[in-house]
Amino acid sequence: MIFETIVTTRSPSGAVHIAPMGIREERDLLVLAPFKPSTTLENVLSTGYAVVNYSDDVRIFAGCLTGRRDWPLTPADRIPGVRLVAALAHAELQLLHAEDDPLRPRLHCRRVHLQNHRPFRGFNRAQAAVLEAAILVSRLHLLPREKIEAEVKYLSIAVEKTAGPAEREAWGWLMEAIAVHDARQAERPV
């Protein structure tokens, strides 16, 4: 099973990187599988640490994919890292070992610390739709235009019916990203 989270990492110089990422749980470990190349991968391999943030604020997922990475942070409790202030819970991780792969290395991490901050009240359909649209936006370069159009058309029904202001804002950012991608594709020589 894959859990959609926000991963925060730091470079050796202390620069913070925030990225949405699906993670897996295997036995007692959390497994991150960032694409190559990626800042998350470089940071975890060089420092040995990451924080997994569990959040229901879909603006963070959409924001990270559309260039909005300035989210309030606070220091982690037990590792040299940071977590999202908006996290409902967070897990502080230490890298145990990495399995190399040409596309997506697997980083096996142990939880050093796990803390709940607020209760999870559940997702509404619009939040789930925004998460799915965020995944589409992260793969625009891989998917045919017809698939993107069909998915957006279906997902927009949930947004229209159940979204609040935060979900509408996140949806708007993602639709702008798709429009920019489409415009760039149209400009490419055939």
Rank of each mutant, 00 (worst) to 15 (best):
I2T: 08
F3C: 12
F3P: 05
E4I: 13
I6V: 10
T8S: 12
S13P: 04
S13N: 10
V16G: 14
V16Q: 12
V16E: 12
V16H: 11
H17S: 09
H17Y: 07
A19Q: 03
G22W: 04
R24G: 07
E25L: 10
E25H: 11
E26G: 02
E26C: 02
D28C: 03
D28F: 01
L29E: 08
L30Y: 12
L32N: 03
P34H: 03
F35M: 09
P37D: 10
P37L: 13
L45T: 04
A50E: 05
V52M: 02
V52H: 03
R59P: 13
R59D: 15
R59Y: 15
I60H: 03
A62Y: 04
G63A: 12
T66P: 00
R69F: 10
W71T: 06
L73G: 00
T74G: 03
R78G: 15
R83I: 07
L84K: 02
V85N: 05
A86D: 15
A87S: 11
A87R: 02
L88V: 09
A89T: 12
H90M: 15
A91Y: 00
L93Q: 01
L93D: 01
Q94Y: 04
L96F: 06
L96V: 13
H97P: 01
E99V: 08
D100S: 12
P102A: 10
L103M: 12
R104I: 08
R104F: 05
L107T: 01
L114K: 07
L114P: 01
L114E: 07
L114H: 11
H117I: 10
H117D: 05
H117R: 14
P119M: 11
P119S: 10
R121P: 08
R121M: 13
A126D: 07
A128T: 09
A129S: 07
V130D: 01
L131Q: 05
A133K: 01
A134H: 00
S138C: 06
R139V: 15
R139P: 14
R139Y: 15
L140D: 06
L140E: 05
L142D: 09
P144S: 05
P144W: 05
E146N: 06
I148N: 04
E149W: 05
E149K: 06
E149P: 02
A150V: 10
A150T: 10
E151A: 15
E151D: 15
K153W: 12
K153V: 10
Y154L: 14
S156D: 10
A158Y: 03
A158V: 03
E160V: 04
K161C: 01
T162C: 08
P165Q: 11
A166Q: 15
E167M: 15
E169T: 15
E169V: 13
E169I: 14
W171G: 01
W171P: 00
G172M: 06
E176I: 01
I178D: 00
V180W: 00
H181D: 00
D182I: 04
A183V: 10
R184S: 11
Q185R: 13
A186D: 08
A186G: 06
E187I: 05
E187Q: 08
R188W: 15
R188M: 15
V190N: 14
